[in-house]
Design a protein around this nucleic acid. Sequence first.
DNA 1: CACTCTACCTGTGCGC
DNA 2: TGCGCACAGGTAGAGT
Length: 276
Amino acid sequence: MPELPEVENVLRSLRDGPPALTGQVIHRALIIWSGVLSGSNEDIFQAMVQNSTFSAISRHGKYLIFTLSSINQCRKEFFLIVHLRMTGRLYLVPRENAVVRHTRVSLLLGDDLALRFDDPRKFGRIWLVNHPDEVTCGLGPDALTVDSDYVESALAERRRQIKPLLLDQSFIAGIGNIYADEILFRAGIHPLASTEALSDNDKERLYDSMIGVLSEAVDARGANVDGVFKEGAFVVDVYGRTGESCRVCDTAITKIRVGQRGTHYCPTCQPLRSRP
DNA sequence: CACTCTACCTGTGCGC
DNA sequence: TGCGCACAGGTAGAGT
């Protein structure tokens, strides 16, 4: 499931190639399932993207933001935004490669390439907007670049259980269920801990853990979960390790539900304290 | 404001 | 072997 580190790696591979997406012209859009388009219909989408050029790629949380420059309309800039949700994939292929079972959109590019969007579960979405804010205005700062002052003051403003708060994209953007569990484990904080019960030291460790876990996962090109082993991938300590022993203290990893989400933690390393 | 629940989807993996 | 079912999770939106 793509969270910030996986999305960042999609960005890097599309931006840097080979082959690189930047500079490619869209000749035509093949919309195989139009439900993927959010806020624009097939015809408008087709007309807008046709003959535009990918000029830049950025990211905010789990949203990929592609800057497109129109050739026919005086180089007007607009934005193609993609959210992969749980099962979306975005990748470049030789244009002649046949679409696969779950391909929802294929953008036919110059240089005999195609940008494919595959998504078995149809949760992913694509927007076409004049300004990224139209999609991303509700997001908090990006989790990889947020500063500790923001986290500290934002924590002080809210009274909530820490795990649902980490998943709240309006607080910080980019953390999903897997990395929320990993971040809390490394910080030694129980997922049900209330923000009010966090000491200054807890908050510091939480911030360091968030930056540490996410940047390591970015460098490792994503996490190793669902039994799929990828060489050099980020190794999880708690997510999906229910009943296995903690790498630090040997206690069995416990699974509970927090806000309807499967939540994994070590009862010894992450004790629940009511006061700082 | 905090929270809970539901809907959106489909592949997987379990128990029977 | 096959069937039914719970489960996985990011987000929006409605309800408590």
